[in-house]
Design a protein around this nucleic acid. Structure first.
Lengths: 214, 214
DNA sequence: CTCCTATCGATTATAGATAATTTATGATTG
DNA sequence: CAATCATAAATTATCTATAATCGATAGGAG
């Protein structure tokens, strides 16, 4: 039951029905979902662990605001994780990149249609698949915890990304993985992510990383 | 109150009083701590999020077992995060490595006394400090979530590490940071962690990473 | 003797009610 | 009029009690 509440809140936040800053009152949600305070509390605490919600003692819970700084930091972290994922996944994906190519096609299609929603979905599939194929469960869990389903949507929704430019990055990554060249795949993945936030970076970043990525 | 329960359980697990596999019965803990089931549930769910405890629905919670495979995966992930941390922290630590040297001295002292407990404490301080100085809060949180306080103790307790050999790695890292050479510091940090689990790796790993680290 | 089923004990999961805390509002005093 | 303090409303935090579920065990049928 706690899980159903969690999923429901998750959907409502993703859809924008619950915007950043929205208040989440435990008993009110409990009434809406035909349950009691306990399960709602659990759900909120899990969303808090995912950094989707913030709670202040005796004050209540709110949908978290995501700043440019947060996005930058999250992408830097994600870049470090995916670089490793690429290295680890390459031996397992060598000569077996059909699925990745399918997702890359879908990404290209979405980019040409300028359809941010589809782009986000297939881009997530693409990257998550590589992390899965690293065969490192802790890496996968850590990656999931960054909860990019939220961040990527919130951010693409702002229309600051050139989908067609970013889309092109995926093909060399597939090629490197197909050859089993993990080092190259890792570097390209990291670079891909760093390029993707170059604009945000200019606004809030410090110089060390920007240079390294280019 | 939930937080106090969490801390108490955490301590009892760290001390070994609650060994891996030990059962954690909600009402029983509640009685011991003079509280009720609710706060205990919350505490258990937080420990579950930290991967310290596993819960099966309607069955109960247990202290988690940590396998060699888990340790390897966690260290790989940690290596990726600390490499980034080193890169980001270098500009901020350039010419300001006094604190790190202090911790490195303490690590050396513990290694010479072959005192795993002290070694673990100061090694944690050393590494965490670098992650803090990355000034990337999401990176820090992600790193913390790997809950190495537990893993490092569980593992050092097994006495499979040559403390004096591992200790020596810290000084070149400090030198690189002191020069502001983030790339080098990052590489050394990753290497340091990969060396540290080389033995475990031989048993369970696949070849890709071992080569890259040497 | 084996397999299936009903029942029991233990424990988690949920509900409902109460206590504790915070914020805002309004009264009181200097 | 400003500042302080008491009070009330709203909400979280906790407690107690009940329901739901699981695993084991015992009893009976084949």
């Amino acid at each position: 039951m706690a899980d159903r509440v969690k999923q429901a809140l998750f959907r409502r936040i993703l859809s924008g029905e619950l915007a950043p800053g929205a208040r989440l009152v435990e008993l009110q949600i409990a009434r809406e979902m035909n349950t009691s305070q306990g399960p709602v509390r659990e759900a909120l605490r899990e969303l808090e662990a995912l950094q989707i919600v913030v709670t202040e003692p005796y004050r209540g819970s709110y949908v978290r605001h995501v700043s440019d700084q947060d996005t930058l930091e999250a992408y830097q972290t994600r870049g470090a994780l995916e670089r490793l994922a690429g290295q680890l996944a390459a031996p397992f994906l060598k000569g077996r990149t059909q699925d990745l190519r399918k997702e890359a096609e879908a990404i290209r299609s979405a980019a040409r249609r300028n359809h941010a929603e589809d782009y986000a979905i297939h881009d997530m599939n693409f990257h998550r698949r590589i992390v899965e194929e690293s065969r490192n469960r802790i890496l996968l869990r850590t990656w999931d915890a960054l909860s990019f389903e939220i961040r990527i949507r919130l951010w693409l929704a702002q229309g600051r990304v050139d989908l067609n430019a970013a889309e092109a990055d995926h093909w060399p990554i597939i090629d490197a993985l197909d050859r089993g060249d993990g080092k190259k795949a890792g570097r390209l993945l990291r670079q891909h992510l760093m390029f993707a936030i170059a604009d945000v970076k200019g606004a809030v970043g410090h110089p060390a990383e920007t240079e390294a990525a280019r």
